[in-house]
Design a protein around this nucleic acid. Structure first.
Length: 388
RNA sequence: UGGGGCGUAGCCAAGCGGUAAGGCAACGGGUUUUGAUCCCGUCAUUCCCUGGUUCGAAUCCAGGCGCCCCAG
């Protein structure tokens, strides 16, 4: 059961989780989802001699998600996490967070769509359930730090801990961590962030004999089966999908839609209206959603560009405070895509005003704008409105 | 029923006697720990119908049917 380490079998180097504290004296709570990443994290830290406690959050669908691939935090995944912990011989707890997950993440998810916004449940989950509630629980368990399997880096900087992109650029998850506060960052650790790639993680899992080593990556929204998120919303908010008109930018009715919750800004597929000539590309994209009138406003790709956005609940992680004077930063308005150049200025309500150097397509309220300076995450904010 | 025009996939649309372009939509897949975008693939044995001419017709001819415009 216990892992025997050959001398030749050297573990990847990991800086001490707590400076000046020996691993054996460092209590680490590892958030174990049941996937490869967090399992490898737990195994690695355990092998390095840390006092590891595994915690798995049960988030939704009690007993009903068993066997579903690519999920996390329910059913089979909880069993996987338990198995891994048992194999390592570390304490492991499963916490029932279903009601708070529903309140903080799923309800918000549904309501955002009803408002015509497009939410990011993964960020909400990190922001509330994981980095607030679970972190508090870790503290209660006497943990020095909370480690997760996120691909991001936390580095000790001159002005305190800094959040940075993962070493593996293609795997980086820092976008989903933008709400993480300095205080939370004090206690958070992301051991995988420094690994060169996912293969290294799987290799780690393999070498510790974890059964989850070949488990497929999770993707899509964890509580949405089959990618049909609208069905989940309708379950949460019966009657949410009210049909309405699809109109062009002049207000001419072009067709009908099956409910505003099925669409997001920048979306092309699923409109069901074809035809018309004249442009080199006649495809229509969702330009705007009007929740009150249940309208989907569509237009050509050229109409998709947004020049500026208003942010709310900005979490600023830069060393110097963000002021009212615009400063240039790089920003991502979606997890994929490269950062683009903008200027950013704080507003009085804790928000910010962001102006793109070049119009950015497919920007939707409810999504996040995350600020970068090279590898470093300077914070981010929720997109409240676009325009200007 | 005077004149003119048009009928090609769900929509738009090339083709003008040589064996059905393209775009949109749709569908399937890839990329992706949010939604999208994007990329790749599939999608008319058949051109309103019926005859005819021709080695060969969506393309020419005749007759139907349907639609549009102008003039009434």
């Amino acid at each position: 059961m216990s892992v025997v380490l050959d001398q030749a079998d050297v573990l990847p180097v990991l800086a001490p989780l707590v400076a000046g504290k020996a691993p054996a004296d460092t209590r680490v709570v590892v958030a174990m989802s049941g996937g490869v990443d967090s399992s490898a994290t737990a195994a690695w830290l355990h092998a390095l001699g840390y006092d590891v406690i595994g915690i798995t959050l049960q988030l939704y669908d009690h007993g009903q998600a068993v066997g579903r691939k690519g999920a996390c935090c329910a059913g089979q995944d909880i069993h996987d996490a338990r198995d891994v912990a048992a194999g390592l011989g570390i304490p492991h707890y499963v916490l029932d967070y279903e009601s708070r997950f529903r309140d903080q993440v799923m309800d918000d998810f549904a309501d955002a769509y009803l408002r015509g916004e497009t939410p990011i449940p993964c960020v909400r989950c990190n922001q509330t359930v994981k980095f607030r509630d679970l972190l508090a629980t870790a503290r209660e368990l006497g943990a020095d730090v909370l480690a997760t399997g996120h691909y991001a880096r936390r580095e000790e900087g001159a002005a305190g801990p800094e959040l940075r992109r993962a070493a593996d650029d293609g795997r980086d998850q820092s976008y989903f961590l933008f709400t993480t506060t300095r205080d939370q960052l004090d206690l958070l650790r992301f051991p995988l962030g420094g690994l060169p790639d996912k293969a290294a993680t799987r290799a780690l899992a393999q070498r510790f004999g974890l059964r989850v080593a070949d488990k497929p990556d999770s993707q899509d929204i964890c509580f949405v089966p089959d990618g049909d998120y609208a069905r989940v919303i309708e379950k949460l908010r019966p009657g949410a999908a009210e049909p309405g008109d699809i109109v062009d930018m002049e207000g001419n009715v072009l067709g009908r839609h099956k409910g505003i919750i099925h669409y997001t800004i920048g979306q092309r597929r699923g409109l069901g209206i074809g035809g018309r000539t004249g442009g080199e590309d006649d495809a229509l994209y969702v330009i705007r959603l009007d929740a009150d009138r249940r309208r989907v406003i569509v237009g050509p790709r050229a109409a998709l560009g947004v020049g500026a956005i208003t942010l709310r609940e900005v979490n600023w992680l830069g060393d110097a405070p963000l002021g009212a004077r615009p400063v240039p930063v790089m920003v991502k308005v979606r997890s994929t895509h490269r950062p683009v150049a903008v200027t950013l200025a704080a507003t009085e309500d804790g928000g910010a005003r962001l102006v793109f150097d070049q119009p950015e397509p497919g920007v939707s309220p409810g999504q996040a704008a995350v600020f970068y300076d090279g590898d470093r995450v300077l914070g981010g904010g929720w997109i409240a409105a676009t325009g200007g």
